[in-house]
């Protein structure tokens, strides 16, 4: 190893630790008893996790978050990949107008559609359901736009070769475009998953029933349902936080490998 690359590694390590320190601290804190925390000592315990899962239903919230963020990611990716393929490759009447409309949705702050979405879902009776949590998020203008740009960068000759080979449009999409666009699709999927995982306002509005809470809602409630006057059970909050961030971290480590492999694969003209 060259000396300057060793310095770089050290710098990167320090920067990484710096970024990670709040998470590491909260994980550390989550294994501490509340008494020890408030008296400045350390006492190891799993009690906070037992409490979060046993008394405060965090296992259920975790499951809800996984279901909602997972399904949103899956469906949104499917819808936006199909839309992106259509916008990138097919000319049809009104196509440009439709694409302009998709781009225009990027300029509308999500809070503006909060109330209309709420009223719509209320009217069709989907409040307090998984569908109510998922449906508003499945049309993702940004993903459609981003993937369209990426697909336009793939030579059309590849599509044409596949058509000559006997493929239908859906086969071309699934067997040629999607594998080549995989890094972009994975990146977009990660992006959608994380923003959905962290989403707070919509689940707060769309769901009143405790059984359908996502992690973020549950976490916010912990401040309020904590016992003790004016005392927040921070170690408990940190245990719940750890439950909230850990799946995302693990997921990223898994997906990141694919991202790197996809990017280095490159396309051949």
């Amino acid at each position: 190893m060259k000396p300057d690359s060793r310095i770089l590694t050290a710098l990167a390590l320090i920067a990484g630790l710096l970024f990670l320190s709040p998470a590491l601290y909260s994980i550390f804190m989550s294994f501490q008893t509340v008494d020890a925390y408030y008296t400045g000592k350390f006492e190891f315990t799993f009690e906070n996790y037992a409490l979060a899962i046993g008394q405060y239903n965090f296992a259920r919230y975790l499951l809800n978050s996984i279901i909602v963020a997972g399904l949103v990611t899956l469906i949104a990716l499917t819808v936006s990949t199909l839309a992106a393929f259509a916008f990138a490759r097919f000319r049809f009447p009104g196509g440009n107008l439709l694409f302009a409309a998709v781009v225009a949705t990027l300029m509308i702050p999500s809070h503006i559609s909060l109330i209309p979405n709420y009223l719509t879902l209320a009217k069709v009776g989907l409040l307090d359901t998984y569908a109510g949590l998922i449906l508003p998020a499945i049309s993702n203008g940004f993903a459609a736009f981003f993937l369209r740009q990426y697909i336009r960068g793939i030579p059309v000759a590849l599509d044409e070769a596949a058509y000559m080979d006997g493929a239908t449009p859906l086969k071309v999409l699934w067997r040629v475009i999607v594998p080549i666009a995989r890094p972009a699709i994975f990146a977009m999927g990660l992006f959608i998953f994380i923003s959905e995982w962290n989403s707070y306002i919509w689940p707060l509005v769309a769901v009143g029933e405790e059984e359908l809470y996502t992690l973020q809602i549950g976490l916010a409630r912990l401040y309020r349902v904590n016992p003790g006057e004016d005392v927040i059970n921070w170690p408990l909050v940190m245990a719940a936080s750890t439950i909230t961030i850990l799946p995302v971290l693990l997921g990223f480590v898994f997906v990141e490998r694919h991202l790197v492999r996809g990017i280095t694969m490159g396309a051949v003209k």
């Binding site: 030579p155 000759a157 590849l158 044409e160 070769a161 596949a162 058509y163 000559m164 080979d165 006997g166 493929a167 239908t168 040629v176 594998p179 080549i180 694969m265 490159g266 396309a267 051949v268 003209k269």
Partner: peptide, 20 residues
């Protein structure tokens, strides 16, 4: 008739091989 139904094979100028 769609290209896939014409039973024609084509070789493209830049080959258009599937990179993956």
């Amino acid at each position: 008739v769609a290209p896939q139904d014409r039973d024609i094979a084509m070789i493209f100028q830049n080959y258009a091989l599937y990179p993956h």
